[in-house]
Structure formats: structure tokens, C-alpha cells
Amino acid sequence: MAKKRVVTTKINGRPVEFLCEPRQTLLEVLRENLDMIGTKEGCSNGNCGACTILIDGKAVDSCLVLAVEAEGMNIETIEGVASADGLHPLQQAFLEEAALQCGICTPGLIMSAKALLAQNPDPTEEEIRFALAGNLCRCTGYDKIVRAVQSAAKMGCASAAK
């Protein structure tokens, strides 16, 4: 077995140092080593998007990133989306629009939507659908998810996110 490595990152605004094996994905380290189970595993091959996190503001499937690659990166996960003041507008919109059924894809979808709205505060339906195409949801048919993102955008999600 290859030697374990020390990796230094920032996760949800706080510096985090962890020890990992080179073969471990960032998803595995988040869940198993750091006990951050909010990021979900649906396929571990980049198909489903349940494990979406933000790395330096970009939506990324954490199952496709090796943990050692995260050195020096700024990572955001679902655990960091709500603040002490309460839920993020996207989270509130998902609840109000009933945009989740089983909820397993929800953390990943919120992360992808957050990345979208940070770049494009007023996306069209087409742009939302394109940005979320990497996040599979098997329960909702996506209708209410798209509406939730539209609603969060209306609430001025982008400004609130900063």
C-alpha cells in the first residue's frame, strides 16, 4: 500500500488538514475520514452528481477527484451552505417548492444550483436545465427542482450567497 499523504485544504471556510491514501477519492475522504456525510454517493463514477461539491467555486463530482489533488483547494460542501442566520435561499426554495422527494440527490443539486446562480444570477429555464443536467434525480421529474432554482434566483440568491 502506498504511503499516506497529508493534504491541506479549506473546507467551508475553515482550514482542514487530513491524512489519506493516494487511492482515496475526495468523496471517500469527506465521508469516511472527515465524517461529513452530507455529500452523497450514488454511483462513484461521475454519472449521477449526488456527490457534487464546489472546488474554488466550480461544481465538481467529488467521486472523480482524488483526495490528494485537493491540496490547497477551497472546498464547499452542503454542510456549509446554511449559515447561522438560517437556510440559504436555495434550501428555502427547495423546501417551499417541494423540490425533493427522497432527498438523496438534493445536496448535490443544491451545490450545482449554487454554482450556477453565482455565475448567472438570472438564468433561463434552458440554462438551469443545462447546468443541472449532471445531477440525476429519479423521484421528481425535475419540474419542481427547476422551479425552486427559478424561485431562489428571484429571491436574489446570488447576492445572498456571497
Binding site: T39, K40, E79
Partner: peptide, 14 residues
């Protein structure tokens, strides 16, 4: 709902 949009809900693998 709140547990599920904040990543706190515990699923099988959690």
C-alpha cells in the same frame, strides 16, 4: 425537509 436540504439526514450508507 430541513435535514434533507442541509445534508443532515442519515441515509443507508451514512
Amino acid at each position: 425537509g430541513v435535514d434533507k436540504v442541509t445534508g443532515r439526514a442519515r441515509y443507508g450508507a451514512d
